[in-house]
Design a protein around this nucleic acid. Structure first.
Lengths: 338, 338
DNA sequence: TTTTAAAATGTAAACGGTTGCATAAACGGT
DNA sequence: ACCGTTTATGCAACCGTTTACATTTTAAAA
């Protein structure tokens, strides 16, 4: 069918071993042989067959990013996409390719994503912490299955994981408001059962403490994903006897709703109330005033995860790493009193 | 090392051919043999080695989505992600996996993405029209290289491509404004050298014509990507002797800027001015009032592209398809006078 | 019971590289 | 010219499936 290494060997008058060595830039090939072989390759239009190469090495040089997403709209969230880009950017120049697998579509066949590894479809996996299960960890460790988790696990396993520093995020956002003379800071997050929300709250509490402030339960809300949620939460806040004058939102969209509620009450941001939100999506530029956000570098998160994974693949015995990435506050209009 | 088909064959007292047939659900295996073999597989914890299987078939059952993105921020655009999700959703239940390749990182090695196919890393490619080159098309056709283009090509090749119906998008958005008693409709797009913008403009012009209106050059603007661009374009519009009272923006972000400009002039949306924008991103819900947008179903676009590609892979001789997907208008607050 | 066809299974050659080991060539030093 | 060492190349087994073809078994028909 197509040109193989044997054709090249015959045409160049050498053995297939020699051709293979030229292909792999082995340093025990004489320069003139190498050149001759390379010329023949070029003449014949030879491309090494990667499948055969994989077969001989018993590895695919592919890593999979497993995601668990149910519907297309969730994909609007740039979260995974940025991570994906970081991973790709790191592994590609190192000879690896990235495969994307949605756990849900995979499960349609009644298969599990761990088959990806057992069937040798991939050399390693990167998975979100939400997919982590105790027995899965056991199985993966038994099989010396290279993998990296994105997100801090609930239980402390000795496995590779990366996450952003959520506690730091909670702390710097709260501190920023306090430093800008906002006195009563509220905190609005998603479900506090999720460890990342718990950590963010923890950071908030730490910041209060450092400023000698007591947390007040009425200022800590644990719901809200939509603009409407944000509106109603903010309305509730403003009806308090002693309403907050600064709010940390862990979600952009919710913060947008709150902004509307504040305006509708005739109050001004940042004059009367200061707001900080999370996730520096382009959305942050769209509010009026523009939103101060915690910038989470998901691209870097991807790079870190990929770095860990390739290390694990190449040195399976290396010690496991856990890594928390710094976050940064992007100061915009919603949080600074002039 | 791990359990192979030979181990299974030996343990079950059959030949490897039989095991292979069981594996592939061949119908010339007796039920009891099949069951016996399956039991042995289960006992031994056998997983078929996909690399070997690929080797025997000389195909990877992987398709690549090639993107050309320069920096992480571009990945904030959910465009590719939704397409990607559609592709994955379609191919995974059909036994294929999705590989993501960023052309730019690939080029770092001095390699071209076409090598993905020549080296048999993938069975087919999906690429954005921006990567299409004349000599590439020639090469791919010679090699019977299965591929599908996302986006309508400039030149009319006999190749597989899918795109959304941009002309329709331009037309329905303009018509919608006209039907809502806006009289002078402006059109703001990106670079008109891009065929999709050209088609959108074409739709706009068609809608005007159907309403017996003449296009006016001062109402057609061809720049703008940022909120600031939108603000300045809108300001210019409002300074015209005869300003528009309806505007079609082909970009959400630009429309946000325009919205600010309108408010700053003390005018009201949708009372004084109507706005329609493109791309039904979550962003559309964030403006006040919420943005009427053309909903582009990128998920479906992915499905269509994947469908074409698998057909091409399985029946290389099939005729090439070109497909334009309908778009839909999501009516929200920016475009309907009460 | 024999004959014939159909169904089930086995045999062994492919698929295209890689690599340990053996061998040959080249080189430098005496 | 000879030896020892380094460098370059060849040989051939191997990676784990699939599948064309050959063979055996089973079932049905005569």
């Amino acid at each position: 069918m197509s040109v193989t290494i044997k054709d090249v060997a015959k045409a160049a008058g050498v053995s297939t071993a020699t051709v293979s060595r030229v292909l792999n830039n082995s340093n025990l090939i004489s320069p003139k042989t190498a050149e001759k072989v390379r010329n023949v390759m070029h003449e014949l239009g030879y491309f090494p067959n990667n499948i055969a190469r994989s077969f001989a090495h018993q590895s695919t040089y592919i890593v999979a990013l497993v995601v668990n997403i149910d519907d297309a709209t969730a994909f609007n969230n740039p979260f995974f996409y940025q991570i994906q880009y970081g991973i790709e950017k790191y592994i590609c120049p190192r000879g690896y390719y990235l495969m994307i697998v949605n756990e849900n579509t995979l499960n349609l066949n009644g298969t599990a994503f761990s088959k990806l590894f057992f069937e040798k479809r991939v050399d390693g996996l990167i998975l979100p912490v939400s997919l982590l299960r105790k027995n899965l960890v056991k199985k993966m460790e038994e099989q010396k299955f290279p993998f990296v988790i994105i997100g801090e696990p609930e239980n402390s396993y000795d496995i590779n994981w990366v996450d952003i520093n959520n506690k730091m995020a909670g702390e710097i956002s709260t501190t920023h408001l306090l430093n800008n003379k906002y006195k009563r800071i509220a905190f609005v997050s998603g479900n506090l059962k999720d460890i990342f929300n718990k950590n963010r709250l923890d950071g908030y509490l730490t910041a209060l403490k450092k400023h000698g402030l007591q947390p007040e339960p009425e200022l800590i809300k644990e719901r809200g994903f939509s603009k409407e949620d944000g509106y109603s939460i903010m309305t509730d806040f403003l009806e308090l006897k002693n309403p907050p004058d600064g709010i940390v939102f862990t979600d952009n969209i919710v913060a947008f709703g709150a902004l509307s509620a504040i305006k509708d009450q005739g109050l001004n941001v940042p004059g009367d109330i200061g707001i900080v939100s999370f996730d520096n999506y382009p959305v942050a530029e769209l509010s009026d005033p523009k939103m101060t956000t915690v910038d989470i570098d998901l691209f870097d998160l991807g790079i870190q995860a990929a770095t860990m994974l390739l290390k694990e693949i190449q040195l399976p015995s290396a010690t496991k790493q856990q890594s928390l990435l710094s976050v940064q506050l992007i100061k915009r209009g919603t949080s600074e009193r002039n």
